[in-house]
Computed example of a mutant assay.
Amino acid sequence: MIQKHVFVVYAGPHEAGRVFHALIHAKQVHGRGDHAELYFAAEGTHWPAMLAKSDHPMNSLFSEMLESGVISGACAACANAFGTADEAKEAVGLVQGPEASFGQIDIIGMNDDGYHVWLF
Rank of each mutant, 00 (worst) to 15 (best):
H25T: 15
G114L: 08
L119A: 06
A76I: 00
I107L: 09
I71P: 02
E90H: 04
Q3W: 02
S60F: 09
S72V: 03
V95Q: 10
H46G: 08
V95K: 12
E64C: 04
M1T: 15
V9I: 15
I24H: 13
D106K: 03
H30G: 09
I107E: 00
M1F: 14
A11R: 09
A49T: 04
K89Y: 01
P48K: 02
Q28C: 10
D106W: 02
A79C: 05
A91V: 05
A52Q: 09
M58Q: 12
Q96F: 02
G103E: 10
N80C: 07
G33V: 13
P98L: 00
V6R: 06
G83C: 03
N111D: 11
H5I: 08
V117P: 07
A49D: 10
A77E: 14
H56T: 03
Q96H: 09
A16H: 02
E64N: 07
H35T: 14
P98K: 08
F62M: 06
Y10A: 06
A36H: 07
S60P: 02
F102G: 04
N80Y: 08
L66N: 08
M1K: 15
I107Y: 03
P48F: 01
P13E: 12
D86K: 10
T45E: 07
N59L: 01
A85S: 11
A91E: 02
L38C: 07
G93W: 04
A74T: 05
F20K: 12
A77I: 12
L94H: 04
E15M: 13
H25C: 14
G83S: 01
V29K: 14
A74E: 06
L38R: 03
I24L: 15
H14W: 11
S101V: 13
R32S: 14
A36G: 10
F7E: 11
N80K: 14
V92T: 08
A42E: 15
L23N: 02
I108F: 08
V6C: 11
K27H: 10
G17C: 06
M58V: 05
D113G: 01
G109R: 05
